[in-house]
Amino acid sequence: MGLDRSSLAKIETGARRVTALELAQVAEALDERIEWFVEEAPPAIVSHRNVTDPGEPSPRIDREVELRARAVEFVSRHDPMLRKALDRLPVFSVPADKEEAEQLAHEARMLLGAEAEGPLKELGARVVRAGLVPFVADLGTESADAASVLLEAGAVAVVNGGLRVGRRRLSLAHELGHVLMADEYTVDWRIDGASTPDLREQLIDRFARALLLPESSFRDAWDRWLADKGARAAAVMAASCFRVDMSTLARRLLELEMVEGTQAAQVRTTRTTRADIVEHDLVVSDELGSGWLPRDYEAAVLRLFRSERVSGARALELLFGTWDAADLPELPQRNASAIWDFVS
């Protein structure tokens, strides 16, 4: 890192001050940003840190959340359009029972600009309209499913890209629930766990299922597929059409009393095969896939780059390495009259 032990010791004891160059070198070595040393983190992240046991290793998802929360705060501070989207985040009261959770899901669909019924596609792009900026980070299988944090304006969610597409969508729907209920900072280890004792979590799970599988259209489609093609095909087609995983589908069927326990267990263990994709003409989606970023966020970063508010290197970092330098637009030529700025 270029900082020798004795310099480090002197800095630690306050015998000498740290230089800007050393700050830059330490930041690079720790893979952090220079401004993090002098600027406060978003308040929700600070209070989350304060309640985390100091001995406890910080889960990797906390770091991913902080990176993205700070990036969104930075971009929205300088891009009025993104800021406007974040300012839209409303606050709802916490549902008291499953009916209220269903009702909240209905209202959330309106908020996302979706029809009241039918599959809810492109969830990642839609939640930005409600003021939630979602990200996907590959955290592997041993990490949390998702997390969300409220910012001064809007919120950020991180979904584990190691999950399958249906679970990624469910996780994001779940985080949307937290955010709409103004939960400051949430890490969800297993969303829709078989028997979470926490009523609030149960209701948010219900909200998430109702958001993705709205009762009326789901019921109609299920009945039709069941009558035409039988239970297994109905499960495969429902999971594909509504883009949910089998376990979510089974739970929804049960809670709407559309199937009995044994049928639900069969749905849960159903696997969509390659033959299913061909024979039922299914559309394979990779929503919220690895490297995906919400379009509105990408557009905001590009606006900062085009207006030269940020350097190309910084723009690429704000895009989390999902873009190459060659992907950035070429900056346009200036007007001839701009020459006066350069000769004086």
Binding site: R17, V18, T19, A20, L21, L23, A24, Q25, E28, R33, I34, E35, F37, V38, E39, F74, R309, V310, S311, A313, R314, L316, E317
Partner: peptide, 25 residues
């Protein structure tokens, strides 16, 4: 060498717009 608190704060401010990794320091 920039090492006063105000110099470091200003350095951090401009870094937020320009720096990534070791670039543009």
């Amino acid at each position: 060498a920039l090492d006063t608190p105000s110099e470091n704060a200003a350095f951090a401010h401009f870094s937020a717009f320009l720096v990534s990794g070791g670039r543009n320091i």
